[in-house]
């Protein structure tokens, strides 16, 4: 990942929308004439802004000189991109075959109760965004889940509350 995305991690909260748009404009300037760079621009934009609402999609389409429907098409194709505000942390419960068989569904049910939101949503306090992943490549550790970049193996539903308490 390039430095723009990394550098944002520390300053997102203090930055105004205007500053964020400014930084996205600079990124677009750098990438716009490279073929196939839309995904990279969207990726960096999401890491700066947190998510990709319609207004930001319009800004990107305009500056990249691409149809808005193409930008939106790419965003809605990849589950990594979000058009809704996201929580501070992302919980992804694996529902690949192995995790499903070993009780992934039970983790989902329990988490829905704990978080008070359904899959695909963000908690009211904006702390967690709750999603399903399709195989994270940890089948031997099923059922698995991730919070941000950390993988939790063989998760016991009863341990979920104590795991979340660390965040």
């Amino acid at each position: 990942m390039s430095s723009e995305a990394l550098s944002c991690q520390c300053c997102c909260d203090e930055e105004s929308d205007q500053q964020k748009y400014q930084r996205i404009a600079e990124i677009i300037e750098k990438y716009k004439n490279r073929e196939g760079s839309l995904i990279q621009v969207l990726h960096l934009s999401q890491s700066i802004y947190g998510y990709l609402p319609l207004e930001l999609q319009i800004f990107i389409a305009d500056h990249m000189d691409k149809p808005l429907s193409e930008v939106s098409g790419v965003i809605t194709f990849y589950s990594f991109f979000s058009t809704q505000p996201r929580g501070k942390h992302t919980i992804r419960v694996c529902m690949g075959t192995a995790c499903y068989v070993r009780g992934g569904k039970k983790l989902i049910d329990r988490l829905e109760g704990i978080l008070g939101v359904s899959v695909g949503s963000t908690t009211e306090d904006k702390k967690f965004t709750f999603e399903i992943a399709r195989c994270i490549g940890a089948c031997g550790l099923a059922p698995a889940m991730m919070i941000d970049d950390v993988v939790f193996k063989q998760v016991n539903p009863d341990k979920l509350e104590s795991i979340l308490a660390k965040y």
Binding site: P67, L68, S69, E70, S72, G73, T76, F77, Y78, S79
Partner: peptide, 10 residues
């Protein structure tokens, strides 16, 4: 060259 239609979702 209008581009209002494209494939959305997956």
């Amino acid at each position: 060259n209008v581009g209002v239609l494209n494939a959305q979702n997956r």
